[in-house]
Design a protein around this nucleic acid. Structure first.
Lengths: 329, 329
DNA sequence: CTGTTAGCGCCTTCAC
DNA sequence: GTGAAGGCGCTAACAG
């Protein structure tokens, strides 16, 4: 493997000149530049990144710690982050915390050890509760999950409002007994539950909410219980795509017809939500845009460490489908 | 940030001793060991990875280059790879080549620059066609995609056999005019097509196969054409989950009832395939196991660079659902 | 504009 | 069993 001094020798210049050309620094004569470039080409020289990082004390690497890589929301966010990062010559280390605070802690230590330039994090609930950007040796931007009083850069959906609009739509469609199943382990689940409660209260309706671990199985079990109640709820609403899947399965098991016997709605515009019969009414998240905005915010923060904290809030889009059709006449 | 000499000073020993303790080398007195450990603890010392990598000339990092991170197959493979890698103190750099040979080439260069310990790759078709492990400066294990005559470590599904069994099942169910829509840009698509052709030929049936770019839209368009034919095919089969989705959409558009008017089957046991009515018959891939086997094969190869090339083939599981119900009486 | 040189933090012989 | 010292390959400060 050729190294910088080989290139210097081949070009008949010093290593400093080679380094300058590589870095695109000004103050190099065009003649020198050309000879260095030719030598680099001839020797197929690639700088040693370990040496460069040691010397320059920067890694040009960012960490992306997502809660659950199986969740399509996060895969789409990851795609966006990766696209933008590589455009900026940044490496990405992707880590999957699996909603486990211990794994999350482990990965954050890893980020410190790797001396990353910055981190994008969708925090677990306990970490978010006591989150302080200054507790970390690198810039952190939160994505998807952020509390009202969290003082940190963040990119999130307007969870409360979106949930409110989804519930208001159901009420509009003449549904009254609306049950809400939400993820207990994430800030988004709680915020969407808050929007649900507000919407119900505004319309003078009683709430029926159930917190569950954010898995298909847990959601199915709770939904099974809910549809066993008398009177049967008018509608079931899920706080995310996985839970929504569990609700659909439970309705299948109970052989309830949607929307005639019970309506259905949720979050996340997954491919299957328009394939099932009838299609499921959902709040669609601008997932790719969320990811893009997050990495861009991180790049800004890295460039300007002292700029004021900013939060980007994106609007969820209500997609009406057959599952929330008007009740009664 | 404390560094090794600070620890040495605090413990009243030399940096060499600290290094030995960190590496778990023998030949260090228990007393020294304890004092070093205490100093490390006290100073919260973390070794600088860039320096260590420069000095040791190893990165303990592996690259994972997948074709499309949005494909749930690859996200599940990634999860497995990551789980096992981090258990072995290895970092993972995940890259998404988007079925683009240029992006793929870019990422492979990145791997060289990063001096990774090894790479897991699901190659694009052109790269696979001329793939030679020796063309790379690091060990490579292929996953998901591998030709019969490729000489390289690989972990794949028994694509030809699985497709054969899927088609044989349809024939068994009295379907005769079976159309096959497969991904033109991947080795798996072609291999599954081969299984289809063999099964049809074995039963003396005429084939009707269509190659498409592996996207929902392309599949839908081609399926739309197929169901416009006279006579209508008895069944439509997809070579992967994305294409299957396109077929379902086309059947919806054409308002064809499954399985009464036309049967349906495909690859990939995605959540929605059991949610739609009727459920879709599929070949389920052991995705997590595939990923696990791949990283384990890579670890073996890294440990034993000269061991003979090996290929792991896993069996797809036929999951019969309503979409392939018996035709006629 | 260009070259010389001193480290970046760590590991690892080599002496003792 | 322990310490001193020389790099790993590169960047950047400084001198010319």
């Amino acid at each position: 493997m050729a190294q910088i001094k080989d290139v210097a020798q081949q070009a008949g210049v010093s290593v400093a000149s080679v380094s300058r050309v590589m870095a695109g620094h000004p103050g190099v004569s065009e003649a020198t530049r050309q000879r260095v470039l030719a030598a680099i080409e001839a020797l197929d020289y690639r700088p040693d990144l370990a040496a460069r990082r040691l010397r320059s004390r920067r890694t040009d690497t960012i960490g992306l710690i997502v809660s659950d890589i199986r969740n399509p929301f996060f895969t789409e966010v990851s795609r966006a982050v990766e696209d933008v990062a590589y455009q900026h010559q940044l490496r990405v280390i992707l880590c999957n915390a699996d909603e486990d605070p211990e794994k999350e802690a482990l990965y954050l230590e890893l980020m410190r050890d790797e001396n990353v330039s910055g981190v994008i994090l969708s925090p677990t609930l306990p970490r978010l509760a006591r989150f302080r950007p200054n507790d970390y040796s690198f810039p952190v931007v939160l994505v998807d999950r952020c509390d009202r009083d969290t003082v940190a850069d963040a990119v999130v959906l307007d969870n409360v409002d979106s949930a409110y609009r989804l519930i208001a739509h159901l009420i509009e469609q003449n549904h009254r007994r609306i049950a809400f199943v939400y993820g207990a382990t994430s800030a988004t689940g709680r915020q969407r539950q808050e929007g649900y409660v507000t919407a119900m209260a505004t319309h003078g309706l009683e709430t029926l909410a159930r917190a569950v671990p954010a898995t298909v199985e847990a959601a199915r079990a709770v939904a099974g219980e809910l549809v066993g109640r008398q009177p049967l709820p008018d509608a079931l609403v899920a706080s995310n795509g996985l839970i929504l899947l569990g609700l659909v399965e439970a309705l299948r098991e109970a052989r309830l017809r949607v929307p005639e016997q019970i309506a259905l709605a949720g979050f996340d515009n997954l491919p299957w939500t328009r394939l099932v019969e009838p299609g499921v009414t959902v709040i669609a998240q601008p997932t790719y845009d969320l990811g893009q905005a997050t990495i861009e915010l991180l790049l800004q923060r890295i460039a300007h460490p002292t700029q004021s904290v900013r939060r980007v809030v994106m609007r969820g889009e209500l997609i009406e489908r057959g599952s929330s059709a008007r009740r009664g006449g």
